[in-house]
Simulated assay, not measured.
Amino acid sequence: MQELNSVFHNQILIVALVACVTAQLLKVPIDLIRHRRVNIRSMFSSGGMPSAHSALVGALATSVGQAKGWDTSEFAIACLFAVIVMYDAAGVRQAAGKQAKILNQIVEDMFQEKEFSEERLKELLGHTPVQVLVGLSLGISIAFIASTRFA
């Protein structure tokens, strides 16, 4: 039980999760500004501005660097993990989202006159490079703010 309790006191984990949740919460006002409507679902979906994935791994790598040192194996692992996640968010998942959009259009065009009960594929899977950079900046900022508060 003591091990489980120590998880809740892991500052690096908490900072990374706060960055992720903050990014997800920011999607609602950003959508409100961009589309002039409240979309609560954006808070619970992948994709959109800012990238919560990037915020999480950016905060994680920054917190590890601050706590363990910038020249440690731990920071190198966290940093490379962050790069892979951000590449995936902006590259692979973005491409999958574009493919889903094209497939949805094909299905819509082919079955416009007939009833077709297939579900639409989710189109907003990945992030643009700007969304990834904003998420990364948010995560790094939260990690630096947290380090001054916990110091």
Rank of each mutant, 00 (worst) to 15 (best):
V28Q: 06
V38S: 03
R34W: 04
V38R: 05
W70F: 14
I106R: 01
L133F: 13
S54L: 08
H53T: 02
P50Q: 06
L124P: 00
I145E: 07
V28I: 15
I106C: 04
K98W: 03
D88W: 06
G65E: 06
S42M: 00
T72L: 06
I145V: 15
K98E: 15
W70H: 05
A90W: 09
V92Y: 12
A67H: 12
A82P: 08
T72E: 02
G65A: 09
P50I: 08
A78K: 00
G97Y: 02
A100H: 05
T72A: 05
H53P: 13
R93N: 01
F44H: 04
A95P: 02
E118L: 11
R120L: 11
G69V: 08
R93S: 10
A67G: 08
V85K: 05
F116S: 09
S51T: 07
I30H: 07
E118C: 07
P50M: 13
N39M: 09
H35A: 10
V85G: 01
Q112M: 07
G48C: 01
A100T: 02
F44L: 14
E113M: 02
H127P: 07
T62I: 01
F144Q: 15
H127C: 11
C79M: 07
T72F: 12
E119K: 15
H53Y: 13
N104L: 12
N104Y: 08
I33R: 04
I102S: 05
L60P: 01
V107N: 07
R120C: 06
S51D: 09
I77Q: 03
I40G: 04
C79P: 00
F81M: 10
M86A: 09
Q105N: 12
D31Y: 10
I142C: 14
E74W: 13
H127D: 11
Q99M: 14
G135S: 10
A89N: 15
M86S: 01
L56W: 03
A82D: 10
V38N: 00
S63E: 01
D109P: 00
L136R: 03
L136V: 14
A76I: 01
I142G: 13
A100W: 08
T62K: 04
R34C: 08
V85I: 15
S54K: 11
F81V: 08
K101N: 04
G135Q: 07
I33P: 02
A95T: 09
E115P: 01
A78N: 04
F144K: 14
C79H: 06
I102V: 11
F111W: 06
E123I: 02
I30W: 05
R120F: 05
E108C: 02
M110T: 03
S117Q: 08
A67M: 12
V130T: 14
A67D: 11
V64C: 03
G97P: 00
Q66G: 10
A52C: 14
Q94T: 05
E74S: 12
A96S: 12
